[in-house]
Amino acid sequence: MASVRSSRVRPRDRSLTRPLRASKPASTAALTARRAGLIGCHVCGLVQTRIERQADPRCARCLHVLHERRPDSLTRTVSLLAAAALAYIPANLLPIMHASSLGGAEDDTILGGVAYFWTSGDWPLAVVVFIASVLVPMLKLVALTLLTATVRRGSAWRRRERAGLYRLVERIGRWSMLDVFVVGLTVTLVHFGSFAVVTAGPATLAFAAVVILTMLASHQFDPRLIWDSAHAGERLARRVNEEGRGAPLTTKKRIS
């Protein structure tokens, strides 16, 4: 355990400054739980040995199933992403709200609503709705595609920034639910008999599906995969070096 580093603790008043970069992010000093033959429980955080848990892959403390990595992470992420991308098309093309009043009936798409707010001078509202319901889902799709593609290629490109991108996707994902809530509240408020009635359009369903599917996709993606390729080449070199000392820290066997 000599190479385990103690965690870097920073004073809170410096929390806004950029964290210090480890001098060599992928150096041999970085020992992951997998290489040490350990598993950290993702529910309670208890660190336990893999061999101990081989017979019964459950956490000794909280009894939840242990995963070294999320099972089938990439396959699940990609399929959920594809489904979300498909649902994104009707979400933008079909009407999200159907308003009928004495003057006549009118269908509104998401982009049509944004354009209406922009032209009527409500540009802060137009910006909020545009960011939440057009930009955020699109950015999520692009970002998750980028993450899965780079992980599949085992790329070492800007690992730390990609980890930050994943955290950002996790954090902003929920905000695209905004339009669904707005439609729900508008439908509830505007029902003045024959004067004016607003009903939800088919795009609401598609849009809700996009939000749910992209959130599920980002939950299925395992950020540890970003860092796994850091050891792939190095592991080989180490094994050759340590042949004489006989301490292979990694085994191929996986507990799923």
């Binding site: 385990v4 580093r5 103690s6 992951t32 739980a33 950290g40 980890a163 950020p223």
Partner: peptide, 14 residues
């Protein structure tokens, strides 16, 4: 010990 939940790095608890 504590494991980083995002990159699997091992740390000694401070």
């Amino acid at each position: 010990l504590i494991v980083c939940h995002e990159c699997d790095l091992l740390f000694r608890k401070p």
